[in-house]
């Protein structure tokens, strides 16, 4: 467990450092996600070395963003002021995205 946690933190640290030093327009943890994928793909690290911590983090993923959800209370006024365009945009774009993705996949998947 501790080795896999170390590897995950290490890749996060590398991602954050690259973002910081090169001022990249993409978050450090997303760079870390890409790098750990590449490292696994190129067999630099093995799946069993990262799997224990990775499975744990994914299992409790939803817990980690609860504080951001609570932060919504600070912006309740912004939401209540603009709830109509927000609702229309969210509903319309979610349905459009669903339909187009499904249609394209079903069409090309033969």
């Amino acid at each position: 467990m501790i080795k896999s946690l170390l590897l995950i933190f290490l890749f996060l640290l590398i991602g954050e450092s690259l973002q910081y030093f090169f001022q990249l327009p993409i978050a450090g943890n997303i760079i870390g996600m890409g790098l750990i994928f590449l490292a696994l793909y190129l067999k630099i690290i093995q799946l069993k070395d990262v799997k224990p911590a990775s499975d744990f983090l994914i299992k409790y993923l939803v817990v980690f963003f609860i504080p951001y959800g609570v932060g919504l209370m600070v912006y309740a006024d912004v939401l209540s002021q603009h709830w109509i365009p927000i609702s229309v945009a969210v509903i319309f774009s979610t349905l459009l995205c669903l339909y187009l993705t499904g249609l394209l996949f079903q069409t090309f998947h033969k």
Binding site: I8, F11, M33, I36, D55, I58
Partner: peptide
Amino acid sequence: PSVVALGV
């Protein structure tokens, strides 16, 4: 770290 785990 969870986002990194998504790469795994």
